[in-house]
Amino acid sequence: MVLEKKGSARVEAGQRRVLDEATRQRRLTRQLEALEKDNFQDDPLSSLPPPGPTARLPAFSETEEPEKKKRKTRGDHFKQRFRKNFTTLLEEENLSEKAEPNYLSAVAPPSSLPPRHFCCVCGFPSHYTCTTCGGRYCSSKCLITHRETRCLKWTL
């Protein structure tokens, strides 16, 4: 098991924190956003020693706002609108005021089947819920691991 020590410091002080619904939701959102990422490591280019005259390429970052230091290096097709991210483009489409069907209306509805639960440590079916964070676990062994590793991860 690869231990991630981040969360544990906050937990051990005798009384356990209990995350409210809003925090749990935020945490889920963050988890799902992480699953959309193109890379987790840094751009190899950006981890180079101080750039020499050849290192002119802009390093890539997935952050939402374009960094100020990036400069336009070529002509026409770098016009502003060719550099917008998904969220900006979606907002500009103004779909909530447009006729259906459209991108927003086409998304699959929630399932009518009951939700299934899996242990967030080992992935097997689970019957118990962590009182602190609402995560699921299947056994006391997995609960211990969960508390030592992830229980309060993804929270701020």
Partner: peptide, 30 residues
């Protein structure tokens, strides 16, 4: 009107697999 989109594709599956392997046995996030 019958077009329906599920926001699950191969990218999400790979990232999820990376995530659970990294947590359970070996760091492979990169």
């Amino acid at each position: 009107d019958g077009i329906c989109r599920i926001n699950v594709g191969g990218k999400l599956l790979t990232n999820h697999l990376k995530e659970i392997i990294s947590y359970r046995q070996l760091h492979v996030m990169d």
